[in-house]
Measured scan of single mutants.
Amino acid sequence: NQASVVANQLIPINTALTLVMMRSEVVTPVGIPAKDIPRLVSMQVNRAVPLGTTLMPDMVKGYA
């Protein structure tokens, strides 16, 4: 199973992502692939993302 990107903490709306905010985990449904973590750094979330939430492409500005 492919690992997805999961929030390692509460990420407030419009926050630029950093490595410490994200972890990889095998979850259902599948979200953004963990291999894309380096690409996500500095991108902003367009909503508040609670701890443990799988990041989906529509949550990150400029990803999709």
Rank of each mutant, 00 (worst) to 15 (best):
M43N: 04
S42A: 14
M22S: 00
E25D: 08
L51W: 14
V26C: 12
K61M: 09
L19P: 05
V20R: 10
V60R: 01
E25V: 05
L51T: 14
Q44H: 08
R23D: 04
L40A: 00
Q2G: 13
P57M: 07
V45F: 01
V49Q: 02
V5F: 02
P50M: 07
A64M: 08
L17Y: 01
T53H: 15
G31S: 02
T28M: 07
N1C: 15
A3D: 15
V26I: 12
V49H: 01
Q44T: 11
I13F: 13
N8K: 11
N14M: 10
T53V: 11
A34V: 13
V45M: 08
A16V: 10
S4M: 02
V41R: 04
V5T: 10
M21K: 03
P12C: 15
I11A: 01
G62W: 07
V49F: 02
R23M: 04
K35L: 14
M56S: 11
S42R: 09
I37A: 07
Q9D: 08
V6L: 07
M22P: 00
K35W: 15
A48M: 12
K61L: 10
V6E: 02
Y63T: 03
P50C: 11
P57R: 10
K61V: 11
K61S: 12
I37N: 01
A64P: 06
R47S: 06
A7K: 00
V41I: 10
Q44A: 10
L19V: 06
T53R: 10
L51H: 11
V5R: 02
P29F: 08
A48V: 11
A64W: 05
A34K: 05
T15I: 08
Q2R: 03
I32A: 02
Q2E: 15
L10K: 08
P29N: 08
V41A: 04
S4N: 00
M43G: 04
V45D: 00
V6Y: 02
V41S: 04
V6S: 03
N14D: 09
Q2V: 14
L19M: 08
V6T: 07
N1K: 05
V30F: 14
L17D: 00
I37D: 00
V5W: 02
P29Q: 07
Q9K: 11
Y63V: 03
V30D: 15
V26L: 12
Q44W: 10
L51I: 14
I32T: 01
L10T: 11
R39E: 07
S42I: 03
V30E: 15
I13R: 09
S24N: 09
I11T: 02
M22H: 00
A48I: 08
P12T: 09
A48W: 06
A48R: 11
Q44D: 04
N1W: 09
V6N: 00
L17Q: 00
A7D: 00
A3T: 10
Q9F: 15
G31A: 03
P12G: 12
V45Y: 00
A48F: 11
M21Y: 05
G31L: 02
R39Q: 09
G31T: 01
P50V: 14
M21G: 03
T54K: 04
P33N: 13
P12F: 08
S24H: 15
S42V: 03
P33F: 12
V45S: 12
P50W: 12
R47N: 07
G52M: 08
Y63N: 03
L10S: 11
V26E: 15
A7F: 02
N14F: 10
